[in-house]
Design a protein around this nucleic acid. Structure first.
Length: 296
RNA sequence: GCGUCGGUGGCGGAGUGGUCAAUCGCAUUUGACUGUAAAUCAAACGCCCUCGGGCUACGAAGGUUCGAAUCCUUCCCGGCGCA
């Protein structure tokens, strides 16, 4: 029988992290974070990273694994996570993946094998100057099949596809390898209106906790505003505010909206995976009984 | 009270006689997702039916005109200036 891995997912602000700790304590588990921003060192308050105290003795993996100046992505996360799972299982404990980055989660659950083409900064820089139309026609020449399926107006996708096609001659179809684990996915959700209220309150509390200072500090230590903007949400708007490009009020207002939109996008992603068993975070009893029967 | 500028769709804000259900931005909704995924991107968005069309709309009411968001009159509301 394959070892089981529990996956706890859901949109931002539903309260995944706390529940993950609870469940980990209950089932002798360790948590692996599936959050594309919490991997960065120093991104604490703005990402709502769990604190040592909140971990309550439960080991957490994939937090603070890299300097934010460096680019981290699915590939790295997947490799690191595979390693963490192996390690946790070998010690007879239950791995619990917890996070809201759908793509990361899917990469491990479906064991997506992505083409092994490292980023080509030189090429990316060059391509980033081109219009989407140009990018599309370049891709069409390199790999008409991929061009046929790709989102023609999405520069990020186009650039990556060109990057792969340049290295490999064409863009191979992604394959799904067999997994050595059985993933059990449980999702937490709440109606958007409620999520928005929680987001509002959380934003204020993050401000009180010194999110602004955190951003200032990161910049003082050499993290460019440009990079912060690229990372999105909190750090993007904090950076804009610190550069005096927007007012504080604007920052808070826009952030609240954008985080809500982000939550929507997360749900959009998760929605299509029918294997996910959904709960509202308050249904503790049901959650535990379901986990119990699926786990054993 | 007088003068003046203005009142446009959920909001901001174009449009100043026809081609306007009304540019655009935002919000909202729906959706995409092959190494940036908190990123990136798309569609819809007055109401009613199927393309096409019909209906109701640009503060209110009248009027001018073949035709008005656009011109005129009165009224209501807001900003500013003078009292």
């Amino acid at each position: 029988m394959k070892p089981k891995v529990l996956v706890i997912l859901g949109p931002t602000a539903v309260g995944k992290s706390d529940l993950a700790v609870e469940i980990a304590r209950h089932y002798n588990g360790e948590v692996i974070s599936a959050d594309s921003r919490q991997v960065y060192k120093g991104f604490d308050i703005g990402t709502g990273k769990i604190t040592k105290k909140e971990m309550r003795g439960v080991p957490h993996h994939l937090l603070d694994v890299i300097n934010p100046k460096k680019i981290y992505s699915v590939e790295g996360w997947k490799k690191d996570t595979e390693k963490a799972i192996r390690d946790i299982v070998s010690r007879g404990k239950l791995p619990i993946i917890c996070g809201g980055t759908g793509f990361y989660i899917q990469s491990i659950v479906d064991n997506i094998v992505l083409p092994d083409v490292p980023a080509n900064p030189e090429l990316r820089k060059q391509l980033s100057l081109k219009s989407t139309e140009d990018l599309f026609s370049i891709l069409t020449q390199l790999d008409p099949n991929r061009a046929n399926e790709i989102d023609q107006k999405n520069p990020v996708r186009l650039i990556r596809a060109i990057e792969i096609a340049t290295a490999l001659g064409s863009v191979p179809k992604p394959t799904h390898a067999k997994t050595e684990y059985e993933f059990i996915q449980i999702g937490f959700s709440l109606p958007l209106e409620i999520l928005r209220v929680k987001i509002h309150n959380r934003l204020l509390s993050r401000m009180k906790k010194g999110m602004l200072r955190e951003a200032q500090h990161l910049h003082a230590k050499g993290l460019s505003y440009k990079r912060m903007e690229a990372l999105g949400l909190e750090y993007r708007y904090l950076a804009l505010y610190l550069q005096k490009k927007i007012s504080k009020q604007d920052m808070l207002q826009k952030l609240e909206i954008e985080i809500g939109q982000y939550a929507r996008r997360q749900m959009q992603w998760f929605k299509r995976d029918e294997r996910i068993k959904w709960f509202e975070p308050t249904q503790t009893k049901e959650i535990y009984s379901w986990i119990h029967t699926t786990l054993f």
